[in-house]
């Protein structure tokens, strides 16, 4: 019974949201506001129960891990953003986060996304795919080299780079279309299958 009510509520809310495709209307607005309200409530309670309590409150106040006073203070400083007059205090917490994250990311990101990628581009030319890959990487990089005018050999290579970039953008667009259609399929499968029972 509870499942049936849930399916009906979900189906009607889906239709309310889809109704925006025809034109803006009160049913769409109601569903939108409901979604925002429920999401906010869900996240507040989830983060309190699953982040704040197990990571800070319980260890600090029940297990006596006093070192956690530091993140508590940094967290409280972050909340100061809510008060414009002393909002500047939150910058200290932000600076801490930015500093830690940059340090953490720098080496690993460079290794994974630059060094390993460069290594993977050092290929022998025994296969046509390898040649295409190396030419694509080099011409694409040359397109982004702006310290010399794009004329002659440099200009021609940069133009080739644009072609490779266009192919990449096209593939990206195709994947984006597929993702959006997948979401529509998901909703249709729910409406036609779970709700109306027309799919087998």
């Amino acid at each position: 019974m509870a499942d049936t009510i849930g399916i009906w509520v979900a189906a009607l809310l889906t239709l309310f949201i889809f109704s925006f495709l025809y034109k803006d209307n009160p049913l769409y607005k109601m569903a939108e506001h409901l979604f925002i309200g429920v999401s906010a409530g869900y996240w507040v309670s989830y983060l309190y129960q699953n982040v704040f309590k197990p990571n800070l409150y319980n260890p600090l106040f029940h297990q006596g891990k006093l070192l956690l006073i530091i993140p508590l203070i940094l967290g409280l400083m972050m909340v100061m953003r809510l008060f414009p007059k002393i909002g500047w205090i939150s910058r200290w917490s932000i600076a801490f986060i930015v500093g830690i994250t940059s340090g953490y990311y720098l080496i690993t990101y460079l290794q994974t996304n630059a060094v390993d990628q460069v290594r993977a581009s050092l290929l022998n030319f025994s296969q046509i795919n390898n040649i295409i890959l190396v030419v694509g990487v080099l011409s694409g990089l040359i397109y982004f080299f702006f310290s010399a005018e794009h004329r002659g050999v440099l200009g021609g290579t940069a133009k080739l780079g644009i072609w490779f970039l266009m192919v990449a953008f096209g593939a990206s667009f195709g994947y984006t279309v597929m993702a959006r259609i997948s979401l529509l399929i998901g909703r249709m499968q729910f409406l036609l299958g779970d709700w109306l029972g027309l799919l087998h």
Binding site: T112, D116, Q117, R119, A120, L133, A168, A171, S172, Y175, T176, M178, A179, S182
Partner: peptide, 17 residues
């Protein structure tokens, strides 16, 4: 991954990461 992000992950596949 989602289709939107797939093209940006293919380089990791090509590099065998």
């Amino acid at each position: 991954c989602t289709a939107v992000s797939a093209p940006s992950y293919y380089p990791y596949l090509q590099s065998k990461q």
